[in-house]
Design a protein around this nucleic acid. Sequence first.
RNA 1: GGAGAAAUGGCAGAGUGGUCGAAUGCGACGGUCUUGAAAACCGUUGUCCGCCUACCGGCGGACCGGGGGUUCGAAUCCCUCUUUCUCCGCCA
Length: 424
Amino acid sequence: MLTLKQIRENPEEVVERLRIKNFDAAGTLASILKLDEERRQLQTSADQKQAELNKRSKEIGALFREKKVDEANRAREEMSRLKEEIKGLHARLHEAEQELEALLVTLPNLPHPSVPPGKGEEDNVEVRRGGSLPELEEDALPHWELGKKYGLIDFETGNKLTGAGFPLFTGLGARLVRALISFFLDEAVAAGYREVLPPLMVNEDSAFATGQLPDKEGQMYKLEADPFYLIPTAEVPVTNIYRNVILDEEQLPVRNTAYTPCFRREAGSYGKDVRGLNRVHQFDKVEIVEIDHPDRSYQTLERMVAHVENLVKKLELPYRIVQLCGGDLSFTSALTYDFEVFAAAQRKWLEVSSVSNFESFQANRLKLRFREKGSKHTRLAHTLNGSALALPRIIAALLENNQSSEGIRIPPALVPYTGFEMIR
RNA sequence: GGAGAAAUGGCAGAGUGGUCGAAUGCGACGGUCUUGAAAACCGUUGUCCGCCUACCGGCGGACCGGGGGUUCGAAUCCCUCUUUCUCCGCCA
């Protein structure tokens, strides 16, 4: 969430920048500023009264030690009124703090100044593209047909086991999944990321800190018996490693990578876009997560983009990178680049990665800070993450683009991992 | 699952109702000394909130696993949750 400092110092700028996200913050901000004022006044008077109580309590202790029992008892009685007052002030203070917090969490992150205005996907700005679009035969099949033809993906049985959107990978299909996971992890480790394997369920504190709660509660699977959520992305556990942590400046950047399955309810999405692997409820993803100094975080973002770009190049997939416009930018993000690969049989661009800088928005909730060299004070760090990469749509594009009468060709970079060059 | 013990600053570890934000040791940082280093000595060494301040900083409040309670006063007493350790049981 935004810090009170950001809001207090530049309310007009906050309102203005949130307009880029098509968010009208004027009313909320006015309430926040009023509550903040109230909160500070309450704290000042509560602190003053508490200071008096503390002082008198020490005096009472001294009286007892001097055996002036009567005097001490009289003083004790006088304290009860003061105690009541403090109690009342604290009650009001907590109320104000909670109201304030409730409002603060409704505000999205400020978009970076470079973010173009726009309503949705159609207003995103293409940054560049690479690779070449394959020429397919007239009878080229979409990946869901190819999955069936070569025994790679069994959607029907996945549906029987769990439900729609839970594909069962079989044979070389399952093997291809495993190969891609290993390939992506090896690439990330080679690029300097530390590999971690986190829990697949997180508690409410973790889900809140990275911004899934309360904003996206309906998009996560929640357990019934315990207050846990199935992770929608490794971003959640991996970023939360650093919840309530103060790093030394020399430790930055902190760079982690994790493979995890991801679980998403995808409530509200239906229709032709959800065919096959285009949109599923459980999928595999390798995520890269970084924590860096605010002065460097945009360079870091570019480096992460370069890493992802390298992956799609090695997989020989035609891709394009788009910068999300204000309307398409997520609640928590300041700047996001999406990677899309072209699935040639569907003739569709499929999003396979989202690389974002959250600046201090998550760090503020995480209480993730660092201490600058030579400084006594702590600062909020910047957090960033990106998919590197999400598997299903990569698989969709690989199958569709590399099909021929011979079978499906595996890109050379992947062959050491699959152990086969063709799916026949 | 049962029984018991414990949780204190970066780490180790004292403190069992009142000058305790917390002894002491280690570590780290600054200084003296030294050609340099080590040793020795001196000093500093948490976070958050509020108020004051041009800045250095000052003052007040909170925090001794989390939450709640008793009390004029809680690291210390009570309740509760969590975690860790030991023993027993069960188990991949």
